[in-house]
């Protein structure tokens, strides 16, 4: 289990990085606006980063027996519902509920 000092350091690092990303562009907007490469990455990175994160979350998925069925079904329900209804809360709640129900059967 992580120690308290390490946890506080992790929180501090995260705050520093996140707040800088949110605040510094207001101070240095001009060079940022002009960087075509950064703009290009800003447009194309977000979807990619999110796809990587989905894979990262599911990479520990159990493959033994039928254990993979629960996360696979939950993922299908989440994505399917979101493509259909476009309701963030509904998609997440339903997907998680399917996962919980299948795991606790």
């Amino acid at each position: 289990m992580p120690e308290t000092p390490y946890l506080f350091a992790a929180v501090a690092v995260t705050v520093a990085v996140t707040w800088s990303l949110r605040a510094l562009p207001f101070v240095a907007l001009a060079p940022l606006r002009e960087s075509r490469t950064l703009h290009y990455l800003g447009v194309r990175m977000p979807t990619g980063v999110l796809v990587v994160l989905v894979v990262y979350c599911l990479r520990g998925m159990p493959v033994a027996d039928n254990a993979w069925l629960a996360p696979a079904a939950a993922l299908a329900v989440t994505a399917g519902l979101h493509l259909w209804r476009r309701n963030v809360l509904l998609s997440i709640t339903a997907g998680t509920a399917v996962h919980v129900v299948l795991l606790n059967l």
């Binding site: 977000p46 999110l50 796809v51 996360p71 993922l75 994505a79 963030v88 997440i92 919980v100």
Partner: peptide
């Protein structure tokens, strides 16, 4: 209650689809 941690991949899936 096991399995609540699926909320995170679900959140990222939804965000990826929206993006």
């Amino acid at each position: 209650v096991a399995g609540l941690d699926f909320a995170l991949p679900a959140l990222f899936t939804v965000m990826a689809i929206d993006a």
